[in-house]
Design a protein around this nucleic acid. Structure first.
Length: 319
RNA sequence: GCACGGGUAGCUUAGUCAGGACUAAAGCAACAGACUGAAAAUCUGAAGAUCGGGAGUUCGAAUCUCUCCCCCGUGCA
């Protein structure tokens, strides 16, 4: 009895993951015992049922109201393909890997039970890894009060604290990273130690497809995308978010477009800097994403512009 | 053209007044890397400069003097 298959489409920002996911979802023409088959044309007719559903793996698209700036897929672009894990949290609150994993597990189960193919699509490597490697992280809720208190301390002080609480974790932690240190202290204070992360074999078989583009082409796409987002009213979106109570501080922490949009709205940077910083930030982000992905040797990489090749490959792979 | 201001890593600058541990510092970029309930976040590392060129004064010059070159700014023509 083979495991149910789950498709994963990943890659850096702006390679065209969302489009491909929808296309693949639409090109599945049948399922044999839970295994998809593909149509010759690669296009479903309006009458045939959609047999793939997309689960977003994007740490910012989970938030409501962050639409233009995150490049969230629109209803029209979905072309009838159901999407999960979009708009599940208010941006004033903090989402987490654990939550994503929990929701995603439920979504996969649900999609499979209806005889369809789950397609995880996104660029947040940590989220994807959490489900592919079936990681169990310590079950300690965020203590915002504690975090606030600890955030006033220096990294040296934090490191010393952790060392006292859990010398083992202190040994391999990044001693200069406040975010990591605070989280480790939070866990150690509740559990006594920071337990080792458990990796359990997943009940699913994940097929990870990575999309890449030449750096110059990616850069061009990022540039073009920025212009189109500005035209679509990204600035107004940020204003709307702030008007609805999202602090600039929080907006800055959301990163990339929102970080610089927040700075611009506070008049800390000029319009020219806004554009430059967003573009640069995205290019750097794409590199960081690749840095993460390239560790996972199970990912099969394809040129993002060669969709036909990918579909052909999947046709074999999924059978 | 004359006068004053300016020329220090790819970029923006600190240091020049009062020469000395300057064997030239920082931020950003570029490059490499980490990541285990914040991941578009957070963090690390190494590299990078004959201090515009030359001459001089001095034990010692990015720093003082002379001279040449370059760009911009302001004033005078």
């Amino acid at each position: 009895m083979s495991k149910p298959k789950v498709l994963v489409i990943l890659g850096p920002t702006a390679v065209g993951k969302s489009d491909l996911a929808v296309e693949i979802a639409l090109s599945i023409t049948g399922l044999k015992r839970g295994i998809p088959t593909f149509g010759r044309t690669g296009e479903s007719t309006s009458k045939s049922p959609v047999l793939g559903e997309v689960i977003s793996a994007d740490s910012r698209q989970v938030y409501t109201g962050l639409d233009i700036g995150t490049g969230k897929i629109t209803k029209k672009e979905m072309r009838g393909v159901p999407h999960h894990l979009l708009d599940v949290m208010n941006p004033k609150k903090v989402f987490s890997v654990e939550l994503w994993k929990k929701y995603t597990e439920a979504a996969i189960k649900d999609i499979l039970s209806r005889g369809k193919l789950p397609i995880i699509c996104g660029g947040t490597g940590f989220y994807i890894q959490s489900i592919v490697d079936n990681i169990t992280l310590p079950d300690v809720p965020a203590d915002l009060k504690l975090r606030k208190k600890l955030s006033l301390k220096s990294t040296d002080e934090l490191f010393l604290m952790l060392k006292k609480l859990d010398p083992k974790r202190a040994k391999n932690i990044d001693a200069k990273n406040p975010v990591r240190l605070i989280r480790a202290i939070e866990i150690a204070q509740t559990l006594g130690t920071v337990p080792k992360v458990k990796k359990v074999k997943s009940q699913y078989e994940f097929i990870q497809i990575g999309l890449t583009l030449l750096p110059e082409i990616l850069r061009e796409k990022i540039h073009a995308r920025l212009l189109s987002r500005m035209k679509k009213g990204m600035l107004a979106e940020a204003q709307r978010l702030h008007a609805s109570g999202l602090s600039y501080k929080r907006m800055e922490a959301l990163g990339l477009e929102y970080r610089y949009l927040a700075l611009y709205l506070q008049k800390k940077i000029s319009k020219k800097e806004l554009a430059e910083q967003i573009e640069l930030g995205n290019v750097q982000y794409a590199r960081r994403q690749m840095q993460w992905f390239k560790r996972d040797k199970r990912i099969e990489w394809f040129d993002g512009e060669k969709k036909a090749t990918i579909k052909k490959h999947l046709k074999q792979k999924l059978f």
